[in-house]
Amino acid sequence: MDMMSRTLLRTLAICFGVTLSQQAAAADIRTGTLPDGSTIVIVTGDFVASDIEVFKSKIAGVRKGVVALDSNGGSLHAGIQMGTAIRLRGLATVVPVGSQCASACAIAWLGGTPRMMGSDAKIGFHAAYRLENGAAIETGVGNALLGAYLSNLGLSDQAIVYVTMAAPSSMTWLSRREAETLGIDILNETEDRPPAVSAPRQESPAPASPAPTLSAEFLARQFAHEYFEKLGSYAGATSELFEESYAASVFYHNKTVPRGQIVREKVNYGARWPKRSYKWREETLSVSCAPGGQTCTVEGLVNWTARSDERRKSAAGVASMRLTIMWDGVRRQIIEEVSKVVAKDS
């Protein structure tokens, strides 16, 4: 947004205080209109993977707006995806007066341009983790993904270390002084415009510096991770997923085939193996993009499992995977897919 002041933060606290205090098993995502006519997107409750598409649909037509956040966290993947969407749309983020935004919520908040923090608001960070036998275990893969996201937002190495330094069982609560030291820009409550244009008045004020853009490599990597997450979900692996994820014609296992053939194969495979999972081995993952970023190739090893309880069969192993992804200015689609099983569990 172009202008955000103390008045707006008070408006958020007064008009949306009751809503922001509500918590749910998954995030509650609603939209409204602020006094200046801009859009507010209110996100409360824990983040889950299914919130990603809901959130993206809510902000799809928003040109000027702010995302108000109040959440204890949840899915890191959802936080990164929502933060990425916020940055791509050029939306502001705010943790309103007296609210709390921690873990994955704070990661999404960082995507805002500008970012705002109401008085008594709490914003907290900790390292990425996975649950193992009920215990939170720090994960290098998760921290690598988080670090790549933060770097693409333009955060310094010092800021990235700060965001990920707390153990999963603890929290680092951000203060305005620490944010200033780390170069994490936060719009002051008393400012009427972002710091980049709040300097002494000029007859023709210089425009604000553009927000750092997310690289084509980063976006291709995120597409590949998100696609595999949906592919491993029984509810997500639908014909609609494949229709939107593949181009009309695809170089598929060394031959050119129409999208319809891939859709049929993928849907049939999902019916035969209802329970599946696909996870990139992050240490093997590489991304290369053509000049201009219109096409990117993602390559690496993938751990996969497949199970059918009805047929009492299961399989697991490792496959090499290469996806070439094209950006047409509207969406990303797969134009090449080549994979090969390199190891199979006995």
Rank of each mutant, 00 (worst) to 15 (best):
M3Y: 08
L9V: 10
C15N: 10
C15F: 14
T19K: 10
T19A: 15
S21N: 12
Q22C: 13
Q23D: 13
D28A: 12
R30Q: 15
G32C: 08
P35Q: 02
D36P: 07
T39K: 07
T39W: 07
I40V: 15
G45E: 11
A49Y: 12
I52F: 11
K56W: 11
K56E: 15
S57L: 09
S57N: 09
A60P: 05
A60V: 11
A60G: 03
R63L: 04
G65Q: 07
G65L: 06
V67H: 05
L69N: 03
D70I: 10
S71R: 00
N72Q: 07
G74D: 09
A78N: 06
R87Q: 07
L91V: 08
A92I: 05
T93C: 09
P96V: 08
V97I: 11
C101W: 04
S103W: 02
T113D: 13
M116V: 14
S119E: 12
A127C: 07
E132L: 04
A136N: 06
E138C: 12
E138L: 13
G140K: 12
V141L: 06
V141M: 03
G142A: 01
N143V: 01
G147I: 14
A148P: 10
S151G: 15
L153N: 01
S156G: 03
A159E: 08
I160N: 08
V161K: 07
V161S: 08
V161L: 09
T164I: 00
P168W: 00
T172G: 06
W173D: 09
R176T: 14
R176M: 07
R177G: 05
E180V: 10
T181G: 10
D185W: 06
L187A: 08
R193Q: 13
R193Y: 09
P195I: 04
A196I: 09
V197Q: 05
V197S: 03
Q202W: 14
E203S: 05
E203P: 07
S204Q: 15
A206W: 13
S209W: 08
P210C: 13
P210R: 04
A216G: 02
E217I: 11
L219G: 06
A224H: 00
K230C: 08
L231R: 10
G236T: 07
T238N: 05
E240R: 11
F242M: 04
E244V: 05
S245D: 04
Y246G: 04
A247D: 04
A247N: 03
A248K: 10
S249L: 00
S249R: 00
V250D: 04
Y252E: 01
N254A: 15
K255A: 12
K255V: 11
T256M: 02
R259Y: 06
Q261I: 00
R264V: 01
N268P: 04
N268G: 02
G270Y: 09
W273C: 01
Y278R: 10
W280A: 11
R281E: 10
L285N: 05
S286M: 12
V287C: 06
Q294W: 06
T297Y: 06
T297A: 01
V298N: 03
V302F: 01
W304N: 01
R307W: 10
R307Q: 14
S308K: 02
D309N: 11
D309C: 03
D309W: 07
R312Y: 15
K313S: 02
K313I: 11
V318L: 12
A319I: 00
I325V: 09
M326S: 06
G329D: 00
R331C: 12
R332V: 03
R332Q: 05
E337A: 03
E337N: 05
E337L: 03
E337H: 11
S339G: 14
